[in-house]
């Protein structure tokens, strides 16, 4: 499959009282039907980079890039109407906390049916049937009952399944998961990740997984991109993560406590101002 996403020198800036502040300073990558992990600390620009692909940034943000395409379509030049044909239909976005990311006054079923209907043009009855079928696909036991529930009646794990079902409704080719498990309990986290892995593999989708959990990403993805302060520090095959060369990545790895090789003192990341360019 050809590259889904091609990004060259992405820059994103937000206005501030003292002039525009650039938060992403020239990020480049290409993505095919593979699983790319983006890791980094809070504020390193992971989410902004991933959302730029769908132009889902606040209106105040200015995005520029020498090249930003989705399946050959120039995203920066695309109209809002053209973007709507990509959003949902060709690329879905899963957000961190289903408590806030689901509409509180619509039932789970209605929200999934809506996503299905925007891109499939079917009747309300077909949309409802599709929603229940999708809930079953994300392994919800009693999909008919859950479809009638409101978000506040769902547990975190169930909410995230609903979110995934909603984003899978139009059969996208790419899934962007922005910290999909950070708001969940550890046991539920594993289930949700397995579910995403399974669905991505079965449907042959591309995946961008944003996380600050290095080991998780290295287990789960094909490639890992490490970001710091709006720049890519290093990009490498996930399997080679333990052999990372960049001092920032090494520093992050050294900070992780290990059960097998316990240390008296955990090492602390020493930041090099040079990383910030």
């Amino acid at each position: 499959m050809s590259a889904h996403v091609e990004m060259r020198d992405l820059r994103v800036a937000f206005p501030s009282p003292r002039g525009p502040v650039e938060v992403v300073h020239g990020v480049s990558f290409t993505l095919g039907a593979e699983k790319l992990g983006i890791v980094g600390e809070s504020g390193s620009g992971k989410s902004v980079t991933a959302r730029a692909i769908l132009k889902l940034l606040p209106r105040a943000a200015t995005i520029s890039a020498t090249r930003l395409t989705f399946d050959g379509i120039d995203v920066l030049g695309a109209s809002e109407r053209q973007m709507r044909a990509i959003r949902g239909k060709r690329a879905g976005l899963i957000l961190q906390d289903p408590k806030y990311a689901l509409n509180p006054v619509m039932t789970a079923g209605a929200q999934i049916a809506e996503a299905w209907r925007v891109h499939h043009r079917g009747s309300a009855r077909q949309a409802r049937a599709a929603a229940i079928d999708l809930l079953a696909q994300v392994r919800i036991r009693d999909p008919g009952r859950v479809a009638a529930l409101y978000p506040h009646e769902l547990s975190g794990g169930m909410g995230q399944r609903v979110m995934i079902a909603m984003m899978l409704a139009p059969d996208p080719e790419l899934l962007i998961a922005d910290e999909p498990t950070s708001a969940l309990d550890a046991t539920v986290q594993a289930e949700i990740l397995r579910l995403i892995e399974d669905l991505v593999a079965r449907r042959g989708m591309g995946l961008i997984l944003i996380s600050h959990d290095l080991p998780l990403v290295s287990h789960f993805c094909d490639r890992v991109m490490v970001m710091y302060a709006g720049r890519v520090m290093e990009e490498l095959r996930a399997a080679n993560l333990s052999a990372a060369q960049h001092p920032y990545t090494r520093g992050l790895l050294d900070c992780l406590p290990s059960l097998i090789h316990p240390k008296d003192r955990l090492s602390v990341l020493k930041r090099d101002p040079a990383w910030e360019g």
């Binding site: 709507r84 806030y100 990311a101 509409n103």
Partner: peptide
């Protein structure tokens, strides 16, 4: 609200 981002990500009209 976050759910507005979700709604936009679904490709809904303004």
């Amino acid at each position: 609200g976050e759910y507005i981002i979700t709604a936009r990500a679904k490709g809904l009209s303004g």
